[in-house]
Design a protein around this nucleic acid. Sequence first.
DNA 1: GTCTATATGCCGATAGAC
DNA 2: GTCTATCGGCATATAGAC
Lengths: 197, 197
Amino acid sequence: MARDSSKTRRRLIAAADGLFYGQGIRAVGVDAVAEAAGVTKRTLYYHFASKDDLIAAYLEERDLPTLGRYQGMIPEGGAPAARRIRRIFEQLGKNAENPRWRGCSFLRAAAEFANLPGHPARVVAARHKRRFEAWLEEVLAADGFGEGAALARQLMILLDGAVAQILIHRDPSYALSAADAALTLLKRANKSKKRRS
Amino acid sequence: MARDSSKTRRRLIAAADGLFYGQGIRAVGVDAVAEAAGVTKRTLYYHFASKDDLIAAYLEERDLPTLGRYQGMIPEGGAPAARRIRRIFEQLGKNAENPRWRGCSFLRAAAEFANLPGHPARVVAARHKRRFEAWLEEVLAADGFGEGAALARQLMILLDGAVAQILIHRDPSYALSAADAALTLLKRANKSKKRRS
DNA sequence: GTCTATATGCCGATAGAC
DNA sequence: GTCTATCGGCATATAGAC
């Protein structure tokens, strides 16, 4: 069996996911990850070259599923972009009500390794956010928005800004404030869309 | 001399500031802080009950000066709120160009201690953000904006969202995208202000 | 108030057997 | 591929002299 998909490796990543997301990456030692996975530390180091390697795998594992979860929660492509975007923010608010919610794993990793721009975790995190922004642009484009790139950026800012405020204040209602702002921005962009057509 | 203002204590906080902000709180040991301050670890523990106590003092020390720096950089009270708000975002972009910039110390602390809602660092961070939001509301009110509380919240979301994106992508231009969004929101709020008067 | 010296335990990572 | 055993180092925190 290829090392990339071995059962033990997957269990280690799952254990790392629970611990790193739950308590923070630097706060969790490799001993704890190995124990949670039911193997020894030596086995962990057979599957991963270093803790940094494990961290990268942890975030990599979250990349597409995280995006997919948002993609799955919004109405189908036929719906107006405004309704689809609003759903994203509403769902963020709902997610944040879960007591195990701890914000965005990618943002938190970037914060923990703020002094290491080349760290594998930073690379994966940046790529994830680029992917997310590109998807938002697609959602806008599907409803005929022009200049979708600039607007998608602003939606990303609102989304991660809401995550930050919710985490700071432990108050999911910031997601609704962000949703209002997003709809206002969409409304203005809509005007120029109509004008152009 | 009172313990709260002793010279050694202040030097320890200054050393902690440089190291915690530069490298992250959990990434820095108390040994490093003591050495940077030119004292031994034992002296550090004379002035602070624990590392958590030192962390709280580090953030406390940043609270008012951080707010004051933003207050000092915007045009005087007579200027329109739109111009004053825009300046805040522009200045954020300029600050982020400094290679030593590492995002917001309060956000990063909240991210590092995401699993400890009652941690002293979280308490200080939340209070700082509340203070900042209240100040934004004052800026809006000074220019006759009604419903300033909701708008101030959205500006906070944009501001911290921009910080997050800049940190992730190491691209200060997100500050300008956020500025555009902020001005759009202000313009719509402005309308209702005019209508009401 | 500051020092030297130390307690105790966890950190990431490795040696070598099976 | 997984194990037992262990390395050297650093973590937070403390004892007791001066």
